[in-house]
Amino acid sequence: MRFRIFRYDPDKNDKPTMQDYDVRLDPHDRMLLDALVRIKEQDDSLSLRRSCREGVCGSDAMSINGKNGLACITKLVDLKEPVELRPLPGLPVIRDLIVDMSQFFKQYHSIKPYLVNDDLPPEKERLQSPEEREALDGLYECILCACCSTACPSFWWNPDKFVGPAGLLQAYRFIADSRDQAAGERLDDLEDPYRLFRCHSIMNCVDVCPKNLNPTRAIGKIKELMVKRSV
């Protein structure tokens, strides 16, 4: 199977190149990550992140034939050859398929991604009805792979000011949690021309999310809550 892979090593050459690989696959090789592991056996200088190889850790996000996805759950049979692999767009490249995710995590951290509840906790669990818990479905499952934020033009232009779809999905995860007491402050924090309102509902995030989550809907809910509290 044929691949064209983005190569860049600042320690060696100053210019990125696309390198062609032709790999013989094993019948067991089902996913793109399996092929990348084969390539690395041939050429140990190819650098990429990977870990769980089942789509839950979020390490191996990359641009696959022009669309962001996880290598470990992208089936080889679905890919057109030569398979073109590039690092996630919009973030600085460290080497090959590895990008610097600092900006992405900085935005995630900026939304205070933790439960805020200043009441003394009860001796046992805080109670939450099944319906209240269901409000978190489609939100808590995010794996922070950055496929969505790095597919978003608004995040490309303003990665330092726009929270981005991943961060906003998590902001809503806490706003929607019946146990959280900081919804008001969370909304205040997002009421800003950039942090939230750079989202123009382009919906690339929904299109690429490997976990089938819907950040655009979560962003819409946040906007609704803002409207609701202003009237």
């Binding site: 046992k124 109670l127 939450q128 818990r133 978190l136 949690d177």
Partner: peptide, 14 residues
């Protein structure tokens, strides 16, 4: 749970 873990729930909230 107090840290915010999204546990599944029973009808009585436990």
């Amino acid at each position: 749970e107090h840290f915010g873990m999204p546990f599944d729930r029973n009808e009585n909230g436990t």
